[in-house]
């Protein structure tokens, strides 16, 4: 599976390399009307799967997350609901704002990081391993409460340097194949890499249920996937680089509708 996928990518990138010989620095934001979610690039079957909550496999994770929300955890034996109450009210629109500035450390923190902080400090439970089933389930459940709302990254001046660092990563060439994110997702969005459409890379549906993964996965898993494709060494889960990149991507997609849990091929 892995071997086939990388061979496919290699051929795809070699073909693209011809078209991309001139690096364009065009990374300006697309106007909202021109922005397309990955959803718009999918076939009607996958779109129908996402739209129907009883056939969207991401909803299985949401159900697990809901159970975790109400289950006591840690030495305090408090559940999330014990403090936050009904997530349908208290978590409405919350996921659409992350990453936020953590007041204690003055660095950005993503939703997964915030959940872990709550678990460790308040519930006195062990942090959930990133990309584990439980972490994804709880994130999906919290994310669902923002579905249909616009992505609303905070306009916080203290986040600007981090967002700029994310933008620099987005436009920086990396890996043996020497590609930046922008070369595919700005300059060639709407085109194809092999047979796969190149989307505009708006993170509207995370965590997504990706059919190729046969499971839920985070934005960071998707980013690592792309980095491996360009033969770069992927950043670690939860690294500041990924959080900066997420800040920039959310800013770039601000105003777009949250789809969590999205389905992608």
């Amino acid at each position: 599976m892995g071997g086939r996928a990388s061979a496919f990518l290699l051929v795809g990138f070699a073909a693209l390399g011809l078209g991309l010989a001139s690096l364009s620095a065009q990374t300006a934001d697309a106007p909202p009307s021109d922005r397309k979610s990955g959803f718009d690039y999918m076939g009607p079957d996958s779109q129908a799967m996402q739209k129907d909550d009883l056939s969207n496999p991401g909803m299985l994770g949401v159900l697990d997350g809901e159970a975790m929300w109400n289950a006591p955890a840690g030495t305090t034996q408090k559940s999330c609901a014990a403090c936050h109450g009904d997530a349908r009210e208290s978590m409405k629109g919350v996921a659409a704002k992350y990453p936020l500035l953590d007041e204690a450390t003055k660095t950005p923190i993503d939703l997964v990081g915030r959940i872990d902080q709550c678990r460790v400090d308040r519930q006195q439970a062990a942090a959930l391993p990133r990309e584990g089933r439980e972490s994804l389930a709880l994130t999906a459940f919290v994310g669902l409460q923002s579905r249909g709302m616009p992505l609303a990254p905070p306009d916080d001046a203290r986040l600007t340097p981090f967002r700029k660092a994310g933008e620099a990563l987005y436009t920086r060439r990396m890996g043996q194949l020497n590609f930046s994110c922008a070369q595919c997702h700005d300059d060639n969005a709407g085109g194809h890499l092999g047979s796969a459409p190149i989307p505009q890379a708006h993170p509207t549906g995370y965590p997504i249920y990706r059919l190729e993964w046969q499971s839920l996965g985070s934005l960071q898993r998707r980013l690592r996937n792309c980095m491996v494709g360009t033969r770069a060494e992927p950043f670690a889960y939860g690294s500041p680089e990924f959080i900066n990149l997420e800040l920039y991507l959310n800013w770039r997609a601000r105003g777009m509708e949250v789809e969590t849990p999205g389905v992608r091929p």
Partner: peptide, 8 residues
């Protein structure tokens, strides 16, 4: 327990 979604 495993989760199931049923549409009847």
């Amino acid at each position: 327990m495993a989760r199931a979604l049923i549409n009847v």
